[in-house]
Design a protein around this nucleic acid. Sequence first.
DNA 1: AACTGAATTGAACTTGACTCAGGTTGATCT
DNA 2: AGATCAACCTGAGTCAAGTTCAATTCAGTT
Lengths: 207, 207
Amino acid sequence: MATRIVEPEAGPRSKRAAILAAAVDCFGETGFEATKWSIVAERVGIGQTALYHYFESKTHCLLTIMRLELKRSHDKFTETTADVTDPVEALRAAVRAAYDVSDHEVLQMRILHNHMDLLAGPRKSKREEAERVEARRLVQLVERDWTNLLVRGMSMGVFPLRDAQLLGAGVLGLIVSVWRWYRPSGPTPLSEISELIEGACVRMVAT
Amino acid sequence: MATRIVEPEAGPRSKRAAILAAAVDCFGETGFEATKWSIVAERVGIGQTALYHYFESKTHCLLTIMRLELKRSHDKFTETTADVTDPVEALRAAVRAAYDVSDHEVLQMRILHNHMDLLAGPRKSKREEAERVEARRLVQLVERDWTNLLVRGMSMGVFPLRDAQLLGAGVLGLIVSVWRWYRPSGPTPLSEISELIEGACVRMVAT
DNA sequence: AACTGAATTGAACTTGACTCAGGTTGATCT
DNA sequence: AGATCAACCTGAGTCAAGTTCAATTCAGTT
């Protein structure tokens, strides 16, 4: 009964991408609740009601942003760890990849993790619910990405045996906790954060 | 110019505590945005407008909940680590204390960490802003709690030297990341989580 | 030129937080 | 007991922001 998500093929004068970009900026800087939907329209240069041609609701737009970001994260993990056999090296590469992001992607991360709770309960409308379900599926995929990495390391005897699921959640939680406070304009460069967290993760998992 | 927060001494028929309790339940289970302010009133057994006798706004109530929870966290940290001299033992005690909470406190934690972003920007109304500023101060205190613990361990030579501020943020981030997904009704008991995270924190900080 | 579907709009609707002008209650004092 | 006064409460209404809807424009096709 799952409603498939068909990424709408952009008509030549579609403003969907522009809306998503503007929404990421607004939601990321000002916060989802605090930004008026009409402001997003203004930035794109259309009337507020035109937004509803592309998104069913403000929340539908938010959920779409979250899903896209989750997909990006999952894909990036997969491609960076694919050809690394040593678990420790794979873990290091995965952490580095997690922090190898543009400023715009930082905003997407912030939006995603500030609204994870949205994925818990069901939505009323069809298209919102479809996005939510897909996003939840991707969350589980990402969690599995990390736990599988740990399981592999444990079965190879490189990592001590522990509850991989729980430890995976911990590693992931540590990594994404950064997006709550990190600001590109802040005093700490992302490279420095990346290095410290990389080390912390390895110590956490190995010994 | 800072407006002090005077905890209103409860008149004998004040419903303030009842409202806070009901709000924690609602906001924690249903989410802040999703719960109607009027439902909270209903639960307490008063009309919606009576809420405004105690809180300036729905958000003011939320900020109050957050501030109270932050104070509780800070106080608990302080009292559990006060008489522990060994840094490793202090760290272990602090982590265990962080997870030694009632179901109601779990909800408060969830609410707190789901709305941390509220503390970033300034508020329009006086009393909201006062709560926000106080909450921000408490956040900094809690962060200092953890970094100080690390600094002490490092200067005693028990922990290797690292950026204590960043590492402290990491430890704290790891610990509180649990509140995003943990449910008392879930499959994993808090005791198990506590043990795993305790070990992870020690490894992260020591070697 | 007629047709089609995507894109857009102004005006109206809905919902839920909040205001206001007063009314009730009950602890305390004389 | 009765008066008093602040704390407490309410119904009716306001307002802002998200959303709906019927009608219109626009670009490309036949």
